[in-house]
Nucleic acid binder design. Structure first.
Length: 883
RNA sequence: GCGGAGGUAGCGAAGUGGACAAACGCGGCAGCCUCAAGAGCUGUUCCCUUAGUGGGUUCACAGGUUCGAAUCCUGUCCUCCGCACCA
């Protein structure tokens, strides 16, 4: 066993015994760090390991900062893979799920993540299902859960329907097979009622990544416009269209209607067009959703023989059945304005429909014969009766008003968002608590009868819904007692994950889905950590649930997640790791070889957590070295009493704490590690040059700061260093700005360069020095000065230099520099040469050089005579004299 | 097509106007240690030179702003991601 892992075992046990990570509500300031709970599909993989290392590092940091941190974990245990595995392996989904949870949990425990395990939850537990069903009934009471017959997405491979959000490019999000449209009666959640709130409150989510907010915004897809009613000539029917461009209404030359539209058959029945339209519809229907919605496809349509009347100019225009109009967006019909809409333009060209220009750009005239594409921009209205001469923006207002006033239609808002289809025709989910009675209709299962449990003895054949067995479906109607039938659909697993974060607040609570006070204390989640793949699905649903529960007065906040952090994936050679590609790296293998803390730290070092991490086994060794160095440092018992570098070390310590703290606050774990590398290196180099007290004071912050990365090693060293456990709950080190000397690195660099030169001289002359004389001459100076000297030489423009020094220069140096330049601009290099500060510094640092070379050191100001002396003594080294 | 994020040394990855030939790690090279290998340690790693705190050319490409650009602006090319016949 790797020595690190032995230590890890020890501390994991101690943590558990002392319940270090278990938290209760209290008066301390809380912080809720939530991991997206995993779907247990087998062993922990490297992606999981990285995600949880990220969240654990952050959690531990927050905990050490003194927050009462809730960091729970659980398992999104219901779902199709378990059922499929059951069919394949002839086991029960429950057995399979329990096995995979055990495997996964083992991995999580071994890596030492600081979860409050006492709050672990599983969505397949009966009490979880009970309260989920209870929530469903509340939704049902408020008419937010309803059943309707509709065209729905059906995946033939998964044998179930899917929500719109779960269809990606016309394919199933899980198995990628093509989706078929079927008309079925299904359960929906009325998420569209919350479309506006879900959209508007995106603005509140300042700590969410911009792209996630944008994705949600696009998904909700709000557009404002008007609905306009067109009367159908010689029929009693009306066709309503939705448009965002009422300013183009005088350009309407046809009406486009979706083939599925209920009016179509009425219009053509018994006319010569009936046959043609039926044939056309047949053709379109044969094509898959993917083919039909491909943007490249040429638009096709078919004249119906009917006409509508444009209410604004009373013109008759032909009605076409058209494949490019979607039945489930807007009203399923669109007014055709070929001159100002690209699709309409293409369609009109193909079917010889007139193109009438009603919007013109301000600087030129359009000619419909010469147009190659539609003019879709704003402009000035022409050929538009009383609205001629208006700009598009004004015209949209005026025409909308006009339509409103004359009852030709009304202003309207349209959303792309559809209601959330939650029925699934599968076994391994939470049963929908509904009973169908021939007399009473839809009857909710009474609260006292919850939970509706899944029957255990079920056959998994892969055909049909396994719940469709009499022992489950045959029930008495709770209302009238007559024989009734139980709903066999289960809920989408995304329902399970839409409220689990609330359950974490009081996971054992028995009188409701969550305890109000616990939720009031812990919620909302301060930081939510997970993958970008949930940008729409889960994150939208959870927001919806929160808003609904707020309206039901069960919550007093309306957004569940204050900050969202989306991490990158772990890649190998640019590809996602997967079993089929054979490029899987097992975390277990890695930590057995390199150690648990090394693996954790390495995953935080390789890349910014937000970005993808390109995995390579090679770099991991470097981290091992680094951790070993820290161990060595804490083992070092130095007896030195010199204080040569004390003030530098103190400065370095404070600046390191500052950097690391800021980095961790912003999830820049890799940058924080770099600062820790440097600090470790510095400590190591200067072990002998600092006093014992300072050294000890400097080591402790290092251990504290490495604790979120490598908690086990940190605990071990912390204890060995004479501190009481646990470092995991020790206070995060504080820094004091006054102790940070911004120049010390420059000074140190300077000393190092001098030492290097002294060394070279020694090597050249083979003199073993007893006395070294340093002349503070032009060569030894801050880079800052050399920079300006160079600039001065280049530009010879003193006033510019002064101006820009004020603007950009190091603030502390400005007054002095300006004084110097103002006194005598031409002497500026000399002024720098004689800089008093440098001389003082060298005097201060005399001791450290003396120490290094075990020789006496004297520092002389570089006057002409001194320098001449130096040059004489050692022609190659004008500034150092060695005896 | 629309929207977003990017392109930095052999690789990974920091750096968003001034101490930048550019942190840090990996890899490479040289040295120490060792019989030897590994580990560890020290140094080095754009090019040319040097006794160098010297010179040259760099941060996708091309222009521009500035005393000064990897960093700001404009254009071009490329990569990744999301949405997409949304009226």
């Amino acid at each position: 066993m790797h020595p690190q892992n032995q230590i890890a075992k020890k501390w994991q046990k101690l943590w558990e015994e002392a319940k270090v990570f278990e938290v209760k509500e209290g008066h301390k300031k809380k912080f809720f760090v939530l991991d997206m709970f995993p779907y247990p599909s087998g062993k922990l993989h490297l992606g999981h390991a990285r995600t949880y290392s990220i969240s654990d590092c952050f959690t531990r940091f927050k905990r050490m900062q003194g927050f009462n941190v809730l960091h729970p974990i659980g398992y999104d245990a219901l779902g199709l893979p378990a059922e499929n595995a059951a069919i394949q392996n002839k086991t029960h989904p429950k057995t399979w799920t329990e096995q995979t949870i055990t495997l996964m949990k083992q991995g999580q425990e071994e890596l030492g993540f600081s979860y409050d395990w006492s709050r672990e939850l599983r969505t397949c537990d009966s009490d979880y299902q009970r309260w989920e069903q209870w929530l469903f009934l509340k939704f049902y009471e408020k008419n937010l859960a309803y059943r309707k017959k509709a065209l729905v997405n059906y995946c033939n491979k998964c044998n179930t329907v899917l929500a719109n959000e779960q269809v990606i490019d016309g394919r199933c999000w899980r198995c990628h097979s093509e989706i078929e449209q079927k008309e079925l009666e299904q359960w929906f959640f009325k998420i569209t009622e919350y479309a506006e709130g879900l959209l508007k409150d995106l603005e509140k989510l300042e700590k969410w990544p911009e792209r996630v907010r944008l994705m949600q915004k696009n998904w909700i897809g709000k557009s404002e416009g008007v609905e306009i009613n067109f009367k159908v000539k010689s029929f009693e029917e009306i066709i309503t269209v939705f448009t965002t461009r009422p300013d183009t209404i005088f350009g309407v030359t046809y009406m486009a209607i979706a083939p599925e539209h209920e009016l179509v058959m009425n219009l053509v029945k018994g006319t010569p067009y009936e046959k043609k339209i039926k044939k056309f519809w047949g053709q379109v229907k044969k094509e898959s959703e993917i083919e039909r919605t491909s943007a490249e496809l040429e638009k096709r349509g078919c004249f119906t023989g009917a006409f509508v009347i444009n209410p604004l100019n009373n013109e008759e225009v032909p009605i076409f059945v058209v494949d490019y109009v979607l039945i489930n967006y807007g009203t399923g019909s669109v007014m055709g304005v070929p001159a100002h809409d690209q699709r309409d333009f293409e369609f009109a060209k193909k079917y010889d429909i007139p193109i009438r220009i009603v919007i013109t750009p301000e600087d030129k005239l359009l000619d419909y014969k010469k147009m190659k594409e539609a003019y879709v921009e704003d402009g000035i209205l022409i050929n538009s009766g009383q609205f001629n001469g208006l700009k598009s923006i004004e015209a949209i207002e005026k025409i909308s008003d006009f339509i409103d006033k004359n009852n030709f239609g009304k202003r309207a808002v349209n959303y792309k968002l559809r209601d959330w289809l939650i029925s699934r025709q599968r076994y391994w989910g939470t049963p929908i608590p509904i009973i169908y009675c021939d007399k009473c209709g839809i009857v909710p299962v009474p609260e006292k009868d919850l939970p509706v449990l899944l029957p255990q003895k079920v056959e998994f054949t892969g055909k049909g819904n396994p719940l469709n067995i009499e022992s489950f479906t045959k029930v008495k109607c709770p209302n009238c007692g007559s024989i009734a039938r139980r709903e066999t659909d289960t809920m989408d697993t995304f329902v399970d994950s839409s409220w689990y974060f609330l359950r974490y607040c009081s996971p054992k609570y028995d009188n409701g889905p969550f305890e109000k006070n616990a939720v009031r204390y812990w919620m909302p989640v301060d930081t939510y950590i997970g993958g970008i793949e949930h940008a729409i699905l889960h994150l939208l649903y959870s927001r919806f649930f929160t808003k609904v529960l707020k309206d039901m007065k069960m919550l007093d906040f309306d957004e569940p997640f204050m900050q969202l952090f989306t991490h990158g994936m772990v890649l190998k050679e640019g590809e996602v790791m997967s079993k089929s590609k054979g490029n899987v790296v097992e975390p277990e293998e890695m930590y057995e070889k390199y150690g648990i803390d090394t693996l954790r730290t390495f995953m935080l070092f390789g890349a910014n957590p937000e970005k993808d991490l390109e995995w390579s086994d090679e770099g991991i060794n470097g981290i091992g070295k680094f951790l070993n160095r820290i161990i060595e440092l804490t083992e070092f018992s130095q007896t030195n009493t010199a204080k040569i570098k004390d003030h530098y070390l103190v400065s370095k310590m404070h600046s390191t704490i500052k950097k690391v703290t800021n980095n961790l606050e912003n999830f820049e774990f890799n940058s924080a590690l770099v600062s820790l590398f440097e600090y470790t290196e510095y400590l190591k180099k200067n072990q002998n040059l600092v006093s014992k007290e300072t050294y000890k004071k400097a080591i402790e912050p290092l251990l504290l700061m490495i604790a979120p990365y490598a908690p086990h090693i940190a605990e071990e060293r912390w204890e060995k260093f004479g501190n009481k456990p646990f470092i995991s709950i020790a206070s995060w080190p504080k820094y004091d700005e006054h102790n940070i000397n911004p120049n010390f690195e420059a000074i140190e660099g300077m000393i190092e360069r001098i030492s290097y030169d002294i060394n070279s001289v020694i090597n050249l002359t083979k003199i073993k020095p007893t006395k070294i004389t340093l002349f503070v001459a032009e060569k030894w100076k801050y880079n800052f000065f050399s920079h300006f000297k160079r600039e001065l030489e280049k530009t010879r423009n003193v006033s510019d230099l002064i101006k820009n020094t004020i603007k950009y220069g190091n603030e502390k140096e400005i007054p002095r520099l300006i004084n110097m330049i103002l006194k005598d601009p031409s002497k500026m290099p000399m002024a720098i040469l004689d800089e008093k500060l440098e001389f003082d510094i060298f005097n201060q640092e005399k001791q450290s050089i003396a120490n290094k070379f075990k020789a006496e050191v004297e520092v002389l100001k570089a006057s002409d005579s001194n320098e001449a002396k130096a040059k004489q003594a050692l022609p190659g080294k004008p500034a150092i004299l060695i005896r």
